[in-house]
Amino acid sequence: MYNIAVKQEEYLTYILKDLDSNSRLEIVPEKGGIVTDWTIQGQKILYLDKQRFKNPQLSVRGGIPVLFPICGNLPDNLYSYQEKSYILKQHGFARDLPWIVTNQDTDNGANLTLTLTSNPETLKVYPFEFELNFTYKLREKQLIIEQSYHNKSQEKMPFSVGFHPYFFCGDKTKLTLEIPAQEYNSKTGDKTYSFNGELDYNLDEIDIAFTQLQGQTTGFTDGKRNLKVEISYSDLFSTLVFWTLKDKDFICIEPWSAPRNALNTGEQLNYLQPDETYTAQVSIEIY
């Protein structure tokens, strides 16, 4: 049995529930359409820094932020289009803007559809008219994010998109990573290292990108909590970024459609023709 409720705290929050499996998901449409919380039988799946979340001057650190129309950062936050320069900050603007709830139902899941459209402010930094429709579907121990990207402008629209899930993890030494790649790149992209499944969590920060993927499923097993997370993604997503900070109780495994700075380099960059729509899907399942 599925249920959708709302609560008003700092922001209006939608609560999706699968009552049979005791799976509970919270989404805040007006703050970037972000998933802020997911628990299954009382066990926390996602990490959220609640103090940062309450501060509108700080970027959210936690939940599942949406990255669009870029993933990562651009050098000096700049790119050029038709001989004009634009400033676009890290990960784009979708995670900061209010999304609109355009549908909700409990047909074969607790389902919530959110929509984001271009506006005069987005056109100043990204000169394309667009419409995004994301449907979050909670079914038992699985979250499915169905996505639709529509180019409403008269020009071919370049874009990249990604998700930045923060998974709660109390002891990283008990993790077993399952990433479909044999090498990764440094954050700057100038060095490549072989990957055997192990990382040094004593480093202050790990920020690496897997760009030569050999499959469409990734995830990890948390031996301490006897929990497995499996992430599956459409072929739109060509890059996986792993990020964590020392002494913080999270790891991020992020499906990106293109590596950082793709808007300048063109690497793995996607394009939509005028009036064209592209659909994709990411799912996260817990075992």
Rank of each mutant, 00 (worst) to 15 (best):
G215D: 00
Y233D: 08
Q154G: 05
A181I: 09
I179F: 04
Y184R: 06
F250R: 12
K228N: 11
F163V: 15
F128E: 05
I251Y: 10
I208L: 10
C169W: 02
Q142G: 09
M157Q: 09
S238P: 05
G170K: 10
E183V: 03
D235F: 10
K191L: 08
F128L: 00
T192V: 04
N196I: 04
L203D: 08
N264I: 06
K228H: 08
T244M: 03
A262H: 04
K141W: 03
T265F: 03
T192A: 07
V161D: 06
D204Y: 12
P259F: 06
W256R: 05
V229K: 06
N151G: 00
L213W: 02
T135K: 01
Y201Q: 10
G170I: 07
K172D: 04
L227A: 10
Y166G: 07
K246C: 04
E155V: 14
Q142H: 09
L143W: 06
T192I: 10
K248I: 05
G219I: 13
N226K: 12
I206L: 09
F128N: 07
H150M: 06
I206C: 10
D222N: 13
F130L: 10
L199P: 09
S153F: 02
F242S: 07
C252H: 06
F167P: 15
F250Q: 13
F159P: 06
A209P: 01
L236I: 13
E178R: 14
P127I: 12
D190Q: 05
N261C: 02
I179C: 01
T265S: 15
K248W: 01
I145G: 00
T192C: 08
D222A: 14
T244W: 03
K191E: 12
A209F: 08
K141N: 15
W243C: 03
R225Q: 10
T176C: 02
L132H: 01
